[in-house]
Design a protein around this nucleic acid. Structure first.
Length: 574
RNA sequence: CGGGGCGUGGCGCAGUCCGGUAGCGCACCGGUAUGGGGUACCGGUGGUCGGAGGUUCGAAUCCUCUCGCCCCGACCA
């Protein structure tokens, strides 16, 4: 590609609203342009990156027996009603009507369509197992898009679906996907980890996420330094510490003016947070009042709480609602409250003689004990793990790291096939629901995550597997013979199968060097008066600080070797 | 949706408080010199000041409504 005719210009200053490095750099490097909130055009340079990511995904999906297909982007609502998700999913699903006033939705995922197809295409155990996939647009009307390609509303996802006869088959399909995903993210050059995750709106029995490390990640994962455990904070378990055994003391009122927060209370009583019981109030989607008791030094993990009480929605309770059950905001305790579900974190079971609220302003109660002074309907681990929480396997303090979710795999089981009647006949001629898994990779998000992990103060540093081009070729100066030599090298490199972005613009050398660094192709070649007079080409790798001079007549083979070596470095480990 | 902020040439901004002919830098076009890290100078092109309504002799500026975008929180690839 000749840069003089490239559609899209690099810009010096990033738009003021771009905050993430990947967002700023991809806009500046003429790879993406916003059209609306969370809606982007991919310019030619950016689309080359995306196509390479897609190709890697294709190759690895094909390698585990995936069959590529394509399902529609606009769905009749009916298919979503059959799965029950038309009503279950909130406003993140875009609903519209066609001219016949029929309800339609924009695809936010494709389980329903796959299940519908499974019903028509699969009828015998002999046809199983199957893995099908496609690369297709999704639209999720996110409450808040952000961060360039990291979190958008319209995006391309590789989603695949496994169809198996039984759970054992699903386990194998899941395992195969795990292998493919590891290979894909290794080939992208990502620093990532696979972690256990929450099943969320997908439902099903198991889920793992592929998380690319980044300080801008929206998720926090907890990692055992011994490699025993890694999980999303949403579900991360940890070993509760075991407080010293104490005799249960009688309750005792204590005056605590101006201590409406747990920290203020602890300061006032000169008491560690871990010796207090904190009350947290929620209203569930089904209208139940949820009274959570947790030790003062811990925070509620709402995902764990939702799972523990089997509620899909939790809303913080209002002061009026809190008073209605007999509690006092800021001084709440489970003592004597009514009309609510009391949920205790496991931490309060083990911790005796806590300070809790007295349900009247300005007063707390010492030595409150679960089981003696109040009862909890549910006792579970609902605490959020934090940095330093102890590994549930080995007890070592865990690290907390931010990460971007680039892939997610789910064991769905028969949740969709049962609801929608997708069955096959087994060896005995008996109808069985097909057992399903679903597996996603965000294509643009993966590319942006690569940028988040590979940039410097000059621009993007692409791994060669998904760089827009292998080589940036610069002609320096205006001399005709320099220009002619660069033109020739451009042709020779292309003939050798090397992808070249040729900066043939009449720009100053500094402009070309800066743009080459910004765009971030792995190899930079420059020909100038000086190098041509010595029959040399300057070659510099984007990752290296220094350039080297290569004889002009051997440069194509030399570059070919570098490109092959760089590609080989990204070969999957297994 | 709740809270905060911003809309002025393609990008970054000033002007708004205190109404009086729309400005600066970059980019873009023409020219001269220059030619290995965003070169200098000269001359240009380009803007319904997000939109609608109102107040006023006069509105980017004041008022009302509205649309869009960004940031912080609850969701997800």
């Amino acid at each position: 590609m000749r840069m003089a005719h490239l559609f899209g210009r690099t810009i010096r200053e990033a738009p003021a609203d771009a905050e993430f490095p990947s967002h700023q750099l991809m806009v500046r490097a003429a790879m993406i342009r916003p059209l609306g909130a969370g809606i982007y055009s991919l310019l030619p340079l950016g689309y080359r990156v995306i196509r390479k990511v897609e190709q890697i995904v294709r190759e690895e999906m094909d390698a585990i027996g995936g069959q590529e297909m394509l399902m529609p982007f606009v769905h009749p609502a009916d298919v979503w009603r059959r799965s029950g998700r038309f009503d279950a999913i909130g406003p993140e699903m875009v609903r519209l009507k066609d001219r016949g006033d029929r309800d339609m939705v924009l695809a936010m995922t494709h389980e329903e369509v796959v299940t519908d197809l499974t019903g028509t295409e699969v009828s015998s155990y002999k046809q199983l197992p199957q893995i099908i996939y496609h690369l297709q647009s999704k639209f999720r009307d996110e409450p808040r898009a952000r961060g360039g390609l990291i979190r958008v509303r319209e995006f391309t996802m590789k989603d695949s679906y496994s169809l198996d006869a039984d759970e054992a088959g699903l386990d194998e399909s899941y395992r195969q996907h795990a292998i493919a995903y590891t290979r894909i993210f290794e080939r992208l050059g990502l620093d990532f980890i696979r972690v256990g995750a929450d099943v969320g709106m997908m439902g099903g029995s198991a889920s793992d996420e592929y998380m690319a490390f980044s300080p801008h990640g929206e998720d926090i994962i907890l990692i055992c330094p011994n490699g025993d455990y890694a999980a999303n904070r949403e579900v991360a378990e940890f070993q509760a510490d075991t407080p010293e055994r104490e005799e249960l003391l009688p309750m005792e009122d204590v005056e605590t003016p101006n201590a409406p927060t747990i920290q203020a209370l602890a300061d006032q009583l000169e008491f560690p947070l871990s010796r207090t019981a904190k009350a947290v109030f929620y209203k569930s989607g089904t209208g139940k009042f949820i009274f959570v008791v947790i030790r003062g030094d811990l925070d509620v993990n709402e995902t764990k709480l939702r799972n523990a009480i089997r509620e899909s929605e939790l809303i913080p309770a209002t002061a009026e609602e809190i008073k209605a059950i007999g509690a006092e905001p800021g001084y709440g305790s489970p003592l004597g409250v009514k009309d609510c579900l009391i949920v205790a974190d496991q931490s309060v079971v083990r911790s005796p003689n806590l300070v809790a609220g007295a349900n009247r302003p300005g007063w707390h109660v010492r030595n409150v004990n679960l089981g003696r002074d109040y009862e909890a309907e549910v006792v579970a681990d609902i605490a959020a793990a934090t940095e330093g929480a102890r590994c549930p396997i080995c007890g070592t303090p865990m690290q907390a790291r931010r990460a971007i979710e680039v892939g997610n795999i789910f064991k769905l089981g028969t949740r969709y096939t049962t609801a929608m009647g997708a069955t096959y006949l087994d060896q005995n001629g008996k109808a069985q629901p097909v057992v399903m898994g679903s597996y996603g990779i965000g294509i643009g998000r993966s590319a942006a995550s690569v940028v988040e992990q590979n940039y410097d103060d000059r621009g993007i540093v692409w791994p060669i597997s998904i760089a827009p081009f292998h080589v940036s070729l610069l002609t320096i100066g205006k001399d005709d013979d320099v220009r002619a030599a660069t033109d020739q090298l451009y042709a020779d490199l292309q003939a050798a199968g090397i992808e070249v972005l040729y900066d043939d613009r009449g720009e100053r050398p500094g402009v070309k060097f800066n743009d080459a660094d910004l765009i971030g192709n792995p190899v930079r070649l420059s020909i100038s008066r000086r190098t041509l007079d010595n029959n040399e080409v300057e070659m510099k790798l984007r990752t290296e600080p220094d350039a080297e001079l290569v004889p002009l007549d051997g440069v194509v083979g030399h570059v070919r070797g570098f490109v092959d070596r760089l590609l080989a470095e990204l070969a999957p480990s297994a």
